[in-house]
Amino acid sequence: MSHIIAVINQKGGTGKTTTTLNLGAALAYQGYRTLIVDLDPQGHTTIGIGIEPDTIAKSMADILIVPKMPISEVATPSYIMGLDIAPAQISLARAAEQVYTRVFREAILANALKNIDYDFVLIDCPPSLGVLTTNSLYACDFIVIPCQISRYSLDGLADLLTTVETVKNLSIEDLFQEDLFRILLTMYDKRNSVTNEYILEQLKPYRDKTFATAIMKNEALNQAQIAQKVIFDYEPKCSGALDYLQLCLEFLEIWRKRNNLPAKRPNLQSCL
């Protein structure tokens, strides 16, 4: 059974795409068969893994438009062994508009992901709370919320949690009883002490719902986007690579606890 993880925050620029790509690559390097679903019409995850959007034959737009099309028809291997991608391009924006008249439109992605042969599926969501994000919320069993250290990111987090309650039909009690989401602090800069102190205080009630790993601000993560590589292949010894490897191991630990699986030693053929 595949575990489906949605990477969501409707605020732009919080590190959703960077997190999807590097967490996905880290999982693949740890030996897990992983699929990244690019659900953002900007197609940055697709570009980030080295695929040019204008060379794609079939994409996530087809999944939305063609009824009952399985995701295996659009998934394509990336340059990393064990990591496939269901790519996106700008046509996904038009496709998203077309499905507004469809019944059960929020279940299209969940249906396309049925009977797939992956350990993990990571969905990179667009920076909005429209039909694409609703589809990913409906399909997923875990949510990663990248949150930049800023006031507006907290507002985005609040709106997202309200939407999760609605889409998953959960009460507030269920939302923290079930281990459904984790907040991931991104672009953390130790020098911004006043802002950091304020934001961390605001997030204090969410202590148990926040990854212990934080992604530090790191220029190599930006440069890797230009090189169209994941951080482990661009600069494996930088702090960004270390942070994402640590995030991957923490995520796997949570996943094992949720599924009552035994602890596993780190894989030597990892991202180093």
């Binding site: 507002d155 609040a158 309650e165 130790k190 205080e201 204090k204 202590r207 148990d208």
Partner: peptide
């Protein structure tokens, strides 16, 4: 908005009542 969210208030009251972790978020 986050502070006004019912979930935040529920979590905060749990922390105060000691039914959940009270460890503050520390800078990573």
């Amino acid at each position: 908005k986050l502070a006004k969210l019912p979930l935040t208030q529920a979590l905060a009251s749990r922390v105060e009542s000691g039914t959940t972790s009270v460890a503050p978020l520390t800078p990573p």
